[in-house]
Nucleic acid binder design. Structure first.
Length: 618
RNA sequence: GCUUCUAUGGCGCAGUCGGUAGCGCGCAUCCUUGGUAAGGAUGAGGUCAUCGGUUCAAAUCCGAUUAGAAGCUCCA
């Protein structure tokens, strides 16, 4: 149990696994960090330093960014401070007093002034000695500023000595108050635990997670690579990676056809005029790859306006009887992301999306939305990712209206409609302001990578504006012209990103139906090669992806290599197998319900086919 | 785009104080090979990312560029 010091000066005891205690614990560690930095770098200016998931950080303004050596030094100072064992105090100051005490801290001053303007209380926490050795002349203890004090609403630990185990993890840049218009500060990340063993376990878990990093594993397993001469954000999918994407794409396209989608094939680039109509030109022209003599064309960064042309240019005016129309297309998109934004297969300059646009009447929105969610849920389930995503209702930011088109009333009514649908669907979702598309609110399926960073895997968006911009209409039952509502959705997100998250989910050991190599045949000696060739041909005939390892290596060596390559099944063939016409099947280590043991070739084939079909259908 | 870090055979790495490159794995050839996580021998392979600067001399020091990593910002 740890003693927390609350804002009002009261204290309470809580265990570390209580969220408030854990946060106070790490927040206090952040204060110790700041105190240590001020000891070693008196000129460093303090910004902010909260607890975050799994740790804490503190931002400083310093002339020279911290080096790895600096971090080690700061850690030492922190240890010393913790050993000194100061207790924390909390108190409020008047605005004037606070301004005087923090005259040398411009960032704190900014926060103090803001809080003072709002009329809020200025709460401070302090730690460290008030009576400095060389300052014994001070009249009373409270006249002397403590060694460290910080504007902070707490709570904190009552004493710093509770922090038994901590580690500084990295020093990076971060903008003051999260805006790139502001100065970049130096941020130190760290983590802290009550016991050394817990810290060690946490660090070990981080290392373990990094081993699943798709950017490392995907290259090791030869799923993809990159090339200096091709460029940033432009990965090369190698045979195995391309195979997985092909499997996914065929599956998704079939699935969409079964669910009433019709296919379009639209161009990869268009005149600027197209993007001017949609409004993308005003917002994203800088982020497009311009082509043509006068750069008056651009590679497409999205598919919507292209598919809209299919709606607009039919041989007759659309009637409400034609709706809904569900267009889908496997579309490759191009976005000129800033150089620092690319990451493995997660953020790219070229990527391929299962893009769909459902044109429907307002009455149909709900059903179509449910159908889109249902498809996504099915896809997630088959991929085994259902428990790894969470749902985010992405709304506009009413304080930042320049980012969006349309009237506030329209936004409010659309968001209300979407909330009704979401509540009816029973999905467990979180709401997020400022995450909407410029033309409408979204439902995003979010997934975290091995570093805990979150990205959108799938999205369903309600668009009540682009139809009007493009003049897309239908005739309703009364004979009046109406603008349809358009649902923008992806059924599998971007294939590259999905592949990345699948690599991390399965640590490269894909389920059988997704494995680029499903079976590896391993002859024990050269004389078994012919029989192996036969088995290989037989299995390939049934579409099973099989490889044959005829190298003159020891069988143990070959098995180990197959395991490293995470091939689901190995068929080991020696004299006994050749003689009896059977295979000795061994499954990939760690596959709990895989096949193993001796079986007939026919039996092996049937079992494989059954397993592939079963898993694929969920 | 910003901050910090990184770039040495296919991959993973070593290379001290500046004196023109090493290791492991892989690869090739040969020998060996009947059984469940590395059989043996020999060999090939590098303008030390690119361009420029400092120096008698640069993998090593400095600058720029390109690419990679983490974080920030952005993400139609």
């Amino acid at each position: 149990m740890f003693k927390l010091l609350l804002q009002d000066g009261q204290s309470k005891l809580l265990p570390f696994d209580d969220a408030q205690c854990c946060e106070a614990f790490r927040h206090t560690a952040a204060h110790v960090l700041a105190q240590a930095v001020k000891r070693s770098f008196p000129n460093a200016k303090l910004a902010m330093g909260p607890a975050i998931e799994n740790g804490f950080y503190y931002d400083f303004d310093v002339d020279t960014p911290f080096s790895a050596d600096d971090l080690a030094q700061i850690e030492k100072t922190m240890k010393a401070i913790i050993k000194e064992g100061a207790t924390l105090e909390t108190y409020t100051l008047s605005a004037d007093e606070a301004r005087t005490r923090f005259a040398e801290e411009p960032y704190k001053l900014e926060l103090i002034n803001e809080l003072a303007d709002k009329g809020e209380a200025l709460v401070f926490y302090s730690q460290g000695s008030r009576a400095l050795p060389d300052d014994a002349q001070a009249q009373s203890r409270s006249d002397v500023a403590p060694e460290f004090e910080d504007l902070c609403c707490g709570p904190h630990l009552a004493r710093v000595s509770d922090i038994k185990a901590f580690k500084l993890l990295s020093a990076t840049g971060a903008y003051w108050r999260g805006s790139e218009k502001n100065k970049m500060l130096c941020r130190i990340y760290g983590t802290a635990f009550p016991k050394a063993a817990e810290l060690e376990a946490h660090l070990a878990a981080l290392d373990e997670a990094k081993k699943r990093d798709h950017n490392k594993l995907g290259r090791e397993l030869e799923l993809f690579t990159t090339s200096d001469v091709i460029g940033q954000g432009l990965p090369v999918l190698m045979p195995k990676g391309a195979k997985i994407v092909q499997i996914l794409q065929r599956w998704i396209e079939d699935l969409e056809e079964q669910r009433g989608y019709v296919l379009t094939k639209t161009p990869s680039f268009a005149k600027a005029d197209l993007y001017k109509i949609s409004g993308h030109y005003d917002r994203y022209w800088d982020g497009m790859f311009k082509i043509g003599k006068n750069e008056d064309y651009a590679l497409r960064p999205m598919t919507c306006p292209f598919q809209f042309q299919a709606y607009l240019n039919g041989s007759r005016t659309k009637s409400y009887r034609d709706l809904p129309i569900r267009y889908n297309e496997t579309a490759t998109l191009f976005r000129n992301e800033s150089s620092g934004e690319m990451h493995g297969l997660i953020r790219l300059r070229q990527f391929t999306l299962a893009e769909g646009h459902i044109v429907c009447t307002p009455e149909q929105v709900e059903d179509e939305f449910f159908a889109a969610i249902d498809l996504i849920k099915h896809v997630l389930e088959v991929l085994g990712l259902s428990d790894d995503v969470h749902y985010r209702f992405s709304k506009w930011d009413e304080n930042n209206r320049d980012k969006y088109i349309g009237e506030p009333e329209q936004w409010e009514s659309m968001q209300a409609m979407m909330r009704t649908i979401l509540d009816k669907s029973g999905l467990d979702y979180v709401e997020a302001d400022g995450e909407a598309a410029f033309y409408g609110p979204k439902l995003d399926m979010q997934m975290r990578n091995v570093y805990g960073k979150e990205d959108t895997l799938f999205t369903v968006q309600i668009d009540f504006q682009l139809a009007e911009k493009f003049g897309m209409v239908y005739t309703d039952s009364k004979g009046d012209k109406q603008f349809p509502i358009i649902i923008h959705r992806s059924s599998i997100g971007c294939y590259e990103r999905t592949l990345a998250l699948l690599i991390e989910k399965y640590a490269g050991a894909f389920p059988l139906w997704l494995s680029p190599e499903q079976v590896r045949i391993l002859p024990i000696a050269d004389r078994h090669n012919d029989f192996c060739e036969q088995i290989c041909a037989q299995l390939r005939k049934d579409g099973i992806r099989v490889e044959l390892d005829t190298r003159s290596e020891k069988i143990g060596f070959k098995i180990r290599e197959a395991q490293l390559a995470k091939v689901p099944y190995m068929a080991v063939i020696g004299d006994a197998e050749v003689e009896a016409g059977i295979v000795a099947v061994r499954n990939r280590k760690g596959d709990p319900d895989g096949l193993s043991g001796q079986m007939s070739i026919e039996g092996f084939r049937n079992a494989l086919c059954e397993e592939i079909t079963q898993r694929r259908l969920g």
